[in-house]
Structures are given as structure tokens and as C-alpha cells.
Amino acid sequence: MTIAVRIPTPLRKLTNGADEVAIDGATIGALIDNLEAAHPGIKERLCDEAGEIRRFVNLYLNDEDVRFLQGRDTALKSGDEVSIVPAIAGGK
């Protein structure tokens, strides 16, 4: 099934500027792999060498952090929206 994935500004150069992409995936892990296939280089920004989601990037399924669901095994269903929320520090 196709999931809407929201891309934050710092990662948009990997999606040709798109702020949202439609990606297939039955779980968060599969979604990340398919995202990488469509937009090479993005997985490295989201996951460490072991494939775990980096701690300064949060992935949200709708309004819930996937860390508090089942992480990469979190199941996705039609109509879900996944948001990538990176740490940002600007204030000035």
C-alpha cells in the first residue's frame, strides 16, 4: 500500500525538492528501504550502520513517534502518514 511520507526541508534535496512522496511499505522498515530505492542516499540520513533509526531523527506515524510503537516493525495501513522530524537548532 502507498503511504504519504513527509520530507523535512533538510532532506528535500534528496527528493528533488518534493515535500511529500508516496512510497509503498507494509512496515516502517520496508518503507525506509523503498524510500531509499526511490531516493538514494536518504536511508543513510535516517538510519545508522546497523539500520536503526538515528536518535536525532524522529519518525512519526501520524502523530505518534514510531519508537513508542514497534519501531521499524510498526505496521502501516492505507491512509497513514509518516513524517520525518529531524533535530533543528536555529533560533537567530
Binding site: 536525532f56 524522529n58 533535530a87 536555529g90
Partner: peptide, 20 residues
């Protein structure tokens, strides 16, 4: 709880890429 540690160097855009 949101971000346990600062991101390591090189994994976030550099100053020259920023703007607001």
C-alpha cells in the same frame, strides 16, 4: 527524550546551506 544527543558533524547541513 526527543533528541538524546546532538547530531554528529557532517550529518546535518552546514552553515552555508542554511537560510531563514
Amino acid at each position: 527524550c526527543l533528541y538524546p544527543e546532538p547530531p554528529p558533524n557532517g550529518l546535518v547541513p552546514s552553515c552555508s546551506e542554511a537560510g531563514i
